[in-house]
């Protein structure tokens, strides 16, 4: 989809044609290139794998498998295009395949019940909270609570939220990666943020933050 040309030509010469204008990439160059470009993304990919959500062991295995596949396909990566999106695509596809395998191996767990709080009972968003209290509550929110709330989002919304907010991918790339229209990326992001906010507001209220003074619009 990108109009960018690959910056490198991987035509091998194997030393037979030393006059060739095409740069020769030996394995160690490619390996170094892969390591330099792809390895810094590992924490982000693991964060995404954990939020699929997978348990820690499966998440790490998935990331490792993703890196092995990415390394083997490294020559197909077009330099100048979005490496995060490319790696993520490999990870999502790998996870889908693994999920199919797991499904065959054992019965499904409670994963199908995750969308319950879509119709949650939290405070109405229109009852705007006191903003300073709201900010304070948000700032003090335990990371675990936030991660759990993210994990409970419907899959599409969760993926959009993580891809846009955590990975910082452009809407266009997220749309392509998830196979959805760009308008759906926007609406899913809105919904994901609204649900997450509602869920976290509900938690903040339980914890005693006074965020519902109705002072807003």
């Amino acid at each position: 989809m990108s109009s960018m040309q690959p910056m490198m030509n991987f035509t091998p010469t194997f030393g037979l044609n030393s006059q060739s204008m095409a740069p020769t990439k030996k394995t160690y160059d490619l390996t170094r290139e892969f390591e330099e470009q792809a390895m810094p993304l590992m924490p982000l990919l693991l964060a995404m794998a954990r939020r699929i959500p997978l348990n820690e062991e499966d998440a790490q295995d998935l990331v490792q498998e993703t890196y092995i596949k990415a390394f083997k396909s490294w020559k197909q990566f077009e330099q100048g295009t979005n490496l995060r999106a490319w790696m993520l695509k490999i990870m999502y596809n790998t996870n889908l395949n693994n999920a199919e395998k797991r499904k065959r191996d054992k019965s499904r767990g409670s994963i199908d019940e995750l969308e319950d709080w879509q119709v949650g009972n939290a405070q109405s968003l229109t009852a705007m909270a006191s903003r300073s209290a709201e900010l304070e509550a948000m700032d003090n929110m335990p990371p675990k609570v936030i991660r759990e709330a993210i994990d409970e989002l419907p899959e599409n919304q969760r993926n959009v939220l993580l891809n846009v907010v955590v990975l910082g991918l452009p809407y266009k790339d997220v749309a392509e990666l998830l196979g959805i229209p760009q308008g759906t990326v926007m609406s899913s992001l809105n919904r994901a943020k609204a649900k997450l906010k509602k869920k976290l507001e509900s938690y903040a209220l339980q914890e005693g933050y006074d965020i519902t003074d109705g002072a807003g619009e």
């Binding site: 390996t31 892969f34 390591e35 390895m39 590992m42 924490p43 693991l46 964060a47 995404m48 954990r50 939020r51 790490q60 990331v63 490792q64 890196y67 092995i68 390394f71 900010l135 948000m138 700032d139 929110m141 990371p143 675990k144 936030i146 991660r147 993210i150 939220l161 993580l162 907010v165 955590v166 943020k193 997450l196 906010k197």
Partner: peptide, 27 residues
């Protein structure tokens, strides 16, 4: 602030051992 809180919540350090394992496999 909300975005930053989400990013921070997802920023759990990966174990160094995982990076070593991946690099080992690649080599």
């Amino acid at each position: 602030v909300f975005n930053q809180v989400i990013v921070n919540a997802c920023d759990e350090a990966p174990p160094q051992e995982l990076a070593d394992r991946i690099l080992g496999k690649i080599r």
